[in-house]
């Protein structure tokens, strides 16, 4: 398989603090990979090393099969949305984006075209001539996100792309990301796991500078043999006869009593469980609104942390 990013045994120390210890990451070309981990786990450091902003203390980074990133050799191939970098407030929006485009190697015409395109993507065309200082925090974040999509980079690194955005803009950024599937390789770091789940097709869990799990999203979501039964009415307790009828199944009722998590063994299949369990629930007078396969990413991630890391 061809990797857009191939990171092996990456190490980084800040004085005595070890930020990365043997981090491994392989991102296939055209994939959208989500990086998930707690604060300080090394996601931002990894992005900065990939983009050549930080030096590493060991290991290798291979970008697009052309060795470690160099802004001259990889001109225009990789872009980054940094987490908390400042864009000078007196600069005008479009002018700044055109400048970034030209610096990426685009002609003036292409840079102008690209700036207009990304402004439209983040819904800021009407503020193209405004000084950045006149924009709200959310709008500046959108400009920061827009600069990462200038030109036609093979790899886009997005560090917390939806942080500070309103729900409408979060959905917009998610759509932009989903629409790029297969066209560009995207690596996204985010604490909003529902966003990662919705947008990414690959995922890596990072803990204290180590990749503890890396897989396709589909595989991660299926390995937990679980279904979620969304109930129409609040259920206070699971009826005893249900518990006794299905001794091999584990039941977990959510705090609000509206979601029943059903876990089962490798030998059973979702279809078998549904065929037996759902009629039993209906017969017990429990109305069902929806049945979902698997669990959500957040539950899987937290379970994974609990079982494998701590």
């Amino acid at each position: 398989m061809q990797f857009a990013l191939d990171i092996q045994n990456l190490k980084k120390k800040y004085c005595k603090h070890i930020a990365l210890k043997n981090l491994n990451l392989q991102v296939p070309k055209g994939a959208i990979m989500g990086l998930v981990g707690p604060n300080g786990s090394g996601k931002t450091t990894t992005f900065a090393i990939i983009a050549g902003l930080l030096s590493s203390d060991g290991g290798t980074v291979n970008v697009s099969g052309r060795g470690p990133f160099h802004p001259v050799h990889h001109k225009g191939l990789l872009t980054l949305l940094p987490q908390d970098a400042y864009i000078p407030g007196h600069s005008r929006v479009r002018e700044t984006l055109v400048f970034y485009g030209k610096l990426q190697g685009l002609s003036t015409q292409d840079a102008s075209f690209s700036a207009d395109r990304v402004l439209e993507l983040v819904d800021l065309t009407d503020r193209a001539q405004s000084p950045i200082s006149s924009l709200s925090h959310g709008m500046i974040r959108r400009i920061a996100a827009a600069q990462a999509f200038i030109g036609n980079p093979e790899i886009v690194l997005l560090d917390e792309p939806t942080s500070g955005l309103d729900p409408h803009q979060v959905a917009r950024i998610r759509d932009i990301i989903i629409n790029l599937r297969g066209k560009q390789t995207l690596v996204i770091s985010s604490h909003v796991l529902s966003e990662i789940e919705a947008a990414c097709d690959h995922i890596a869990f990072i803990e204290e500078g180590v990749t503890v799990r890396q897989d396709t999203m589909a595989h991660v979501m299926q390995t937990q043999r679980q279904i979620s039964v969304i109930l129409a009415n609040t259920l206070e307790t699971i009826p005893d006869d249900i518990l006794q009828s299905f001794p091999d199944i584990t039941f977990n009722l959510s705090e609000n009593g509206l979601c029943l998590q059903v876990g089962f063994t490798e030998s059973a299949s979702t279809a078998i469980i549904n065929r037996a369990l759902l009629p039993a629930l209906l017969n017990a007078g429990i109305d069902i609104e929806e049945v979902r396969r698997g669990s959500n990413l957040e539950a899987i991630y937290l379970e994974d942390r609990k079982n494998n890391y701590h």
């Binding site: 900065a48 983009a51 050549g52 902003l53 990133f69 160099h70 802004p71 001259v72 001109k75 225009g76 990789l78 872009t79 980054l80 940094p82 908390d84 970098a85 400042y86 864009i87 000078p88 970034y100 610096l103 990426q104 600069q147």
Partner: peptide, 13 residues
Amino acid sequence: NTRNVRYHLFRTS
């Protein structure tokens, strides 16, 4: 200091 360089230095040397 403001990390503004982070917008430039993956684009140019």
